[in-house]
Simulated scan of single mutants.
Amino acid sequence: MAGKLEGLTADSRLVSLDALRGFTVLAMIIVNVPGSWSHVYSPLLHSHWHGATPTDLVFPFFLFIVGVSIALAFERQLDQGKSKKELVKKVLVRALKIFTLGIFLWMFPKFDLGNIRIPGVLQRISIVFLACSLLYIYGDWKAQVKWAVGLLVGYWAIMTFVPVPIDDVIQQALSTGETLRSGGMVTVDGIRKVGEGLIAANYEPGTNMESWLDRRLVPGRLWEKTWDPEGFLSTFPAIGTGIAGMLTGRLLLSKLDSDKKVIWLFVAGFSAFVAGNVFDWFFPINKHIWTSSYVLYAAGLAAMSLAFFVWLVDVQGKVSWTKLGVIFGSNAVVAYVLHGVILKLLALANIPLRSGFFDGLVAVGVPEKLSSLIWALFYSLVICFIPVYFLYKKKVFIKL
């Protein structure tokens, strides 16, 4: 097994990547379905603003894996002689399916067009997949590096130096020192006027350039009332996360021997992690606005995690523990969609399974936060596991 990675080609399948994808989707589900949002362990919540918790790493890990998968999949198809025009057609269709599915998941089951939210997790995945796929098909690794650097530096420059026009939200923040988000009013510090109708560039909630553009350009409902974490401008650095994954995929497909691949993957990941922490001094790590430092920080941790998985699974041959991840990873998007649909169906049928489970545990003396976590584990490892395990056993792999 020690030499397995040396012979990796575009036709090979990395069990380590499948497992990491599955465990990432499983983590997505767990953090999305606590028994009670009032009782959650802090690592299972997103950071309030600047900084990052383990939960803040889940989404960028998935986008990073999307990038790795693009490199492996498209290299195989290009080797098979498929035309770029044919590949682009498939990319467009798949991206549209994923985006539409994201809209469906938001609207189901009421389909209230007056409350529609256009951005979302699946929608961002579809855009990143589309952009990265086109860049992989038509560009080499040098072009991908240039695009990644351009996106991250450009986003930093816009957020740091471009004054923000004053609208009603910013005017309220200037008057009261607060702005609205989904949890209520939050304090905004240090914003100041720099001219007629403008405030200085800033990274504060609701008053930064990303938030202002969301209010101007994004139709429908915004998740945070005055901006959206999957909004317009922050999608550009998110593409950088996908590019980091594509470059990782190119490394895995290189002619280096197994040990060198793992070492270089870990070194590259650690370097990105350090760079992200240094960049944090100038552009704070922040998932809500997907800062450039956050891209480097999260991509670095994702690369090091993949390096460990590759070494343990594909080099050392330790595969028995990966089965749960592989099952979820084999139908990752299906698992994510099911976790939302099942909850909504239970609510539609007026079946209080979630609250009953949580309240029952609390009634017998289980601490509230632990009860909330136990429900999340039960829901993901039992209720969501059953359908994806059935698909896996039947060898049904739904590719959107």
Rank of each mutant, 00 (worst) to 15 (best):
M1L: 15
A2W: 14
G3W: 12
E6H: 10
V15Q: 14
I29K: 05
I29H: 06
V33I: 14
P34M: 14
P34N: 13
Y41I: 07
S42K: 14
S42G: 05
H46M: 07
G51S: 08
T55F: 08
F61M: 15
F62S: 10
I65H: 01
V68S: 06
F74L: 14
G81S: 11
G81T: 03
L101Q: 06
D112E: 07
I116R: 11
R117V: 06
I118G: 07
Q123H: 10
I127L: 15
I127R: 03
C132L: 08
L134Y: 05
L135S: 12
G139H: 09
W147S: 15
Y155C: 10
V164M: 07
I166D: 03
D168T: 13
Q171W: 06
T176V: 12
E178P: 03
G183T: 11
D189H: 14
E196W: 03
I199R: 08
S211L: 05
L213T: 09
P219S: 14
W223D: 12
L233A: 03
L247Y: 11
L253G: 10
K255H: 02
V262T: 02
V262S: 04
A268T: 05
G269E: 00
A272K: 01
I285K: 01
W290F: 13
A299Q: 00
L301C: 00
Q316M: 13
G317M: 09
G317T: 11
T322Y: 08
G329F: 01
N331P: 08
V333A: 09
V333Q: 01
A349H: 00
I351E: 08
G356C: 05
E368M: 13
K369V: 10
S371L: 02
S380D: 06
V382I: 15
F385K: 03
K393D: 13
